[in-house]
Amino acid sequence: MNHDVDGFRFGLVTPVAAYLMAWLSSALGLRCIVRTVHHGHRGKSGWLILGAASIGCGIWTMHFIAMLGFTIDRIDLTYDVGLTVLSLVIAIVVVSIGVFVVGHLGATRWTLGVAGPVTGLGVSAMHYTGMHAMHFHGSLRFDTVTVVLSVLIAVGAATAALWAAVTVRGLMPALAAGLVMAAAVTGMHYTAMAAVSFHPTATAADLHTGQSPLSLLLPMLIGPMFFLFLAAWIVMFDPLLVAGDSGSSRTASAAAPTARLHP
């Protein structure tokens, strides 16, 4: 990035907040997928959808929380609402593809070899669609090598996440896996931002016009964050997950008929 660009307007506040959001949503998504793999198959598609939407919303929210700290010297930034929403749809759809492939076929070399790259490329598409939604007086240029590196990080993170989704069991391992996934996803974001250079073309009359990204992005972040809150509430009170964490697989299997008798 050139000398006019600052990705840390609020210091470490936005990177830390973005990382925490990525961590919580990753751990939440893993718990949803674990529910289908280790604790029975009732409502499997619903839990896979909930897990994929949680991870997709979390990655998207992480991206735009980080973008709240992004500024260009003396240039006002605005965002196209349609493209911003499209980036959210891309995140959820591509994560769903990877989650459903691995959730139904298992974490084999073949499934990970297909689902991992597809999901990673989708996450990258979400990021660059979100960047394309940004409007300002000037042009964007991308360093090819750094862009490729960011995509490789995204593919690696997606593959590791899908592998963990069907192998990690228990609350603490899921939280630990979420930490690693969040570090990879957040690292991908800032690597991708390092590939960007901005070249303003505005005249003095064009500077400091438009609406603040803070006023645009904050309202849009409320919906996905509220969804993640509801998803967390569902996971926290699911009897099979609670039984699976507190006891053996026998306890988990014994809890299943109880859940059916007393929903």
Rank of each mutant, 00 (worst) to 15 (best):
F100Q: 01
F100M: 03
V101W: 02
V101D: 01
V102I: 12
H104L: 10
H104F: 12
H104K: 05
H104D: 14
H104Q: 14
L105I: 07
G106F: 10
A107T: 08
T108W: 10
T108C: 10
R109C: 08
R109Y: 11
W110C: 12
W110D: 10
W110R: 10
T111E: 08
T111F: 14
T111S: 14
L112Q: 15
L112F: 15
G113S: 14
G113W: 15
G113D: 13
G113V: 15
G113C: 12
G113T: 15
V114C: 07
V114M: 11
V114F: 11
A115L: 14
A115K: 13
A115V: 14
A115E: 14
A115W: 14
G116D: 07
G116P: 07
V118D: 10
V118E: 08
V118W: 08
T119P: 04
G120R: 12
G120P: 11
L121N: 09
G122P: 10
G122A: 11
G122C: 12
V123R: 10
V123H: 09
S124M: 09
S124W: 11
S124N: 07
S124P: 06
S124V: 13
A125H: 13
M126T: 02
H127R: 01
H127M: 05
H127W: 07
Y128R: 05
T129V: 15
T129Y: 11
G130I: 00
G130D: 05
G130Y: 01
M131D: 05
M131V: 07
H132L: 10
H132F: 12
A133V: 03
A133W: 02
A133P: 02
M134S: 02
M134N: 01
M134L: 04
M134D: 01
H135P: 00
H135K: 01
H135M: 01
F136I: 00
F136L: 03
H137L: 03
G138D: 01
G138A: 00
S139P: 04
L140Y: 12
R141G: 11
F142D: 01
D143M: 05
D143K: 02
D143L: 11
T144K: 02
T144M: 12
V145G: 11
V145K: 04
T146Y: 06
T146I: 15
V147I: 07
V147S: 01
L149C: 10
S150C: 03
S150H: 03
S150G: 08
V151F: 07
V151I: 13
V151G: 05
V151T: 08
V151P: 03
V151D: 02
L152D: 04
I153W: 02
I153Q: 04
I153A: 06
I153R: 06
A154E: 04
A154I: 06
V155S: 04
V155I: 11
G156L: 09
A157E: 09
A157N: 07
A158K: 01
A158G: 05
A158V: 00
A158I: 04
T159D: 12
T159M: 11
T159L: 13
T159V: 13
A160V: 13
A160H: 15
A161D: 12
A161G: 15
A161P: 09
A161S: 14
A161N: 14
A161C: 14
L162C: 11
L162K: 09
L162E: 09
L162I: 08
